[in-house]
């Protein structure tokens, strides 16, 4: 026998901590870390404006746009998974998480191709201040994506084993908050290296 539970599709109550307090401590550490790395980017750019102006044409804009679309779509799937859990639709939640994982995996796959393309075009660690700054920031971001993908496997397992419910899904939401913050960081990295002349 199955029961259909109808939950109004309304936003959560205001004044709450999305996910958990511990996750937000981690997120503000992540944001601070990237803020410092962005400071390095801006100082390097101020000292080498011509090199940074010419930099984006050395990178693959197609790869940069690909990362963006993969992460945004993965983030959308995660947000839909949280909505499904709020409506007690566990199996739909799991399907959205699997979708999020597939799109999230697109990021390291594109990275693999981009690195090969970069090296074939001589863009290694000796290719100048723009490329070094690019590797510095984008590899740090890649590490955060890896943590996110590992976290996603964990919340998929927890969802599959029925550990979350419409009343208790703080673990799922904590992961979602982390993943969306990783999205936000990428939305800043992308124009700095692939678009801004």
């Amino acid at each position: 026998m199955s029961y259909a539970i109808t939950v109004p599709d309304s936003p959560p109550a205001a004044g709450r901590i999305p996910g958990s307090k511990a996750m937000w401590v981690g997120i503000f550490c992540e944001v601070t870390e990237f803020a410092l790395m962005f400071a390095v980017y801006f100082i390097a750019r101020a000292h080498h404006p011509e090199i940074f102006r010419a930099g984006p044409e050395r990178l693959s804009l197609l790869a940069g746009t690909g990362y963006t679309l993969m992460l945004l779509t993965s983030g959308w799937c995660v947000a839909r998974a949280v909505h499904a859990m709020r409506a007690s639709r566990q199996s739909a939640c799991l399907r959205w998480l699997i979708g999020a994982f597939v799109f999230g995996l697109g990021y390291p796959v594109i990275k693999l191709f981009e690195i090969r393309w970069n090296l074939a075009h001589g863009l290694d660690g000796d290719a100048g201040v723009f490329i070094v700054t690019y590797y510095y920031l984008s590899f740090n971001h890649l590490i955060h994506v890896f943590w996110g993908l590992l976290g996603m496997i964990w919340v998929m397992l927890r969802t599959a084993t029925g550990s979350y419910s419409a009343e208790e899904y703080a673990g799922l939401e904590s992961f979602a908050v982390y993943w969306h913050t990783t999205d936000i960081i990428w939305l800043m990295i992308f124009p700095l290296f692939y678009v801004l002349r």
């Binding site: 936003p11 959560p12 109550a13 205001a14 004044g15 709450r16 901590i17 999305p18 945004l72 983030g75 959308w76 995660v78 947000a79 979602a176 908050v177 969306h180 913050t181 999205d183 936000i184 939305l187």
Partner: peptide, 12 residues
């Protein structure tokens, strides 16, 4: 992303 993915309008 802040408003619709992170749901910041409902956060503290």
């Amino acid at each position: 992303v802040c408003d619709h993915y992170l749901e910041l309008p409902t956060a503290t």
